[in-house]
Simulated scan of single mutants.
Amino acid sequence: MSLPDTAPRAGATPPAPNSPAGRSVPLEPFNKSVALSLGVELELQLVNTHDYDLAPYAEDMLRLMAQTPLPGSVVPEMTSSMIEISTDICHSAKDVVAQLTPIRDALVKNADKLNIAVVGGGTHAFQQWHERRIYDKPRFRELSELYGYLSKQFTIFGQHVHIGCPDADGALLMLHRMSRYIPHFIALSASSPFVQGQDTQFDSARLNSVFAFPLAGRAPFTLSWKEFGNYFERMTRTGVVRSMKDFYWDIRPKPEFGTIEIRVFDTPLTVERAAALAGYVQSLAAWFLQEQPFTPCEDDYLVYTYNRFQACRFGLDAVYVDPASGEHMPLRDHILMTMTQLEWHSEALDATQALALLRTSVEANRNDARWLRERQARERLLAEVVRQSALRFRKG
């Protein structure tokens, strides 16, 4: 998960750029985008091939990747054992995998030249945060000054999915509808059971690190871009916020792209699963746009934190509380019920194969966290688990 570009320096929070302290900053206009278009970002681990610990090779990898024409982009992240890849604008899950695959292949080829490996997953299984190096970039040094050891502990790895929205008010409606499905996204992508060499008993321990940062959690409830703009101006007036990137919400609007950005996914172990998750988001968005299945309200958030915790802790074995009825049911059942509701939309979007991949794993009660635990139970050596994860990323 990317830290904001515009974080304040240590000490007092400075005012927004070109703005005196105490003066609000208007929210930028919401740009047009193609409804249901997609964009995917993946944060990835760089590990050595000696003991499979994280390796500070981001600069070398970026230099090699710059020599190969590819879709999207490859950029550094907070610490020097991380990189982030992203797609260009896509229109289907198949587009996503078609763009991620050559990027993945180039990463693997260049990693071989450096005698390192590239790995998915939401956390590295046994790295020690104090050994990490902040990537040598002004904004990362600034963030390190402000957040101290949290900056190195933020060596965690997420997938972000952007979905194009037809207009600004529609983006907020989409955001709050998607919020009901945050537990789905967490459980389906969960791949971070191990931290600092220990089984955390969470399927997604990564999100616990996110909560350490200010303005994490959920967006304020409003379905009007004008009201949201008023909120943004009030927040900038306090000096706490300088841009949308200062919000760490699970889902946030991205007005410059004309999208909402869903940020709770752990990075999957394969690009195929990453594309499938994007197809699931797109199918949900199509359902919302075409059928208007429900109108979100503030009361939806009464159980939001509970549902979120359940999914992080128990993955597909979580309990899901329906915010409208209060009914408790297995999260696995709610996901399968939702996938059945989406069948027509996924077919129209050519996402049938993507949802079938996810459905098969849900029916088998399997996600990447389960795969990692099974490997550790068999091997009893986390370095070997990371090595096998690197092989899985290479092939999938």
Rank of each mutant, 00 (worst) to 15 (best):
W225L: 00
M178K: 02
V241I: 14
L277C: 08
M174I: 08
Y248V: 04
E272A: 04
F202K: 01
D203W: 08
V241K: 01
F257C: 07
A276Q: 06
G170W: 04
W249E: 05
M178G: 04
L188H: 06
I163C: 05
I186L: 08
L207N: 14
M235K: 11
S243T: 13
I182P: 13
L172G: 02
I182K: 05
I262K: 07
S283R: 11
T238D: 01
W225H: 03
P268S: 14
F265T: 04
L215E: 09
I260A: 09
G258S: 07
I163E: 07
S243Y: 11
K245H: 11
G217E: 03
E261T: 07
A205E: 08
R180W: 02
V271D: 01
K254S: 11
L172A: 01
F211A: 15
D167P: 09
L188M: 12
F247S: 04
F213P: 08
P183T: 11
A219H: 06
P268T: 13
E256K: 15
P253I: 13
I262T: 11
Y231N: 13
P166L: 14
T259F: 13
Q201K: 15
Q292N: 10
D169E: 05
S224H: 03
P255R: 11
G197P: 07
H162I: 06
L269K: 11
P193L: 07
C165M: 05
S179L: 09
D203Q: 13
P253K: 11
E272R: 12
K254R: 09
D300L: 10
M235A: 13
R218N: 15
P166T: 09
Q292V: 02
W249P: 07
H162P: 04
G279T: 05
D300F: 14
V281L: 00
R206C: 12
I182F: 13
A171L: 03
T200P: 00
R263P: 00
L277S: 08
L277R: 09
V264K: 02
A205L: 03
F294I: 08
S204M: 08
T200E: 13
P220N: 08
A190Y: 00
P193H: 09
D199I: 08
S192E: 06
G170S: 12
G239M: 04
P255C: 10
A205M: 12
G258Y: 00
D299P: 14
R218E: 15
V264A: 02
E256V: 14
C165I: 00
H184Y: 13
G164Q: 05
V195K: 06
Y248I: 02
L284A: 05
N230I: 13
A219Y: 10
D250F: 12
D203N: 10
V240R: 07
F288D: 05
P296W: 14
S204K: 03
I182N: 05
A187I: 07
F232L: 03
V195Q: 04
W287M: 03
I251A: 00
A275N: 04
S192A: 12
